[in-house]
Design a protein around this nucleic acid. Structure first.
Length: 120
DNA sequence: CGGTTTTGACCGGCGC
DNA sequence: GCGCCGGTCAAAACCG
């Protein structure tokens, strides 16, 4: 589980990183929770997502996945959680609003196809 | 080479 | 007041 001893050094030093990066958690936009029936966690909605964390929750026996949008001006956050009794059922929570143009046709071909089928 | 991914650790808020 | 939980970031490694 140990990849490098470098972290040991950091633990004892704790640089000046992590400044007061406080973001206003105003109720800008509520979280949109979508339940999707998919064996895959990453449902390509036309945007690119970069995983930035994975943590396990108590209520669930499966790890939760955190994704972030890697768009130019789009910083949307996506939270993907797996059900404990239904691994095929994943709860996708979208946070924020995409500023990008309407989703590409790709969505109407792949993602939309699946989403339309379930039409959650 | 770039971008992305993976793990660990820390922080902040809340509860009791 | 302290503990706990959830959430985020950072560095390194890996893949195309």
């Amino acid at each position: 589980m140990k990849r490098n001893g470098d972290q040991n050094e950091n633990l004892g030093v704790l640089p000046i990183k992590m400044k007061k990066i406080k973001a206003r958690r105003k109720v800008r936009e509520p979280r949109f929770c979508f339940k999707t029936m998919s064996d895959v966690d990453v449902l390509d909605d036309g945007y690119k997502w970069r995983k930035y964390g994975q943590k396990v929750v108590k209520n669930t026996q499966h790890p939760r996945s955190y994704y972030r949008c890697t768009q130019d001006n789009c910083h949307v956050k996506k939270r993907v959680e797996r059900l404990s009794e239904d691994p095929r059922m994943v709860i996708t929570t979208y946070e924020g609003r995409h500023i990008h143009s309407p989703p590409p046709d790709e969505e109407g071909s792949l993602a939309s196809s699946q989403l339309n089928n379930f039409f959650w």
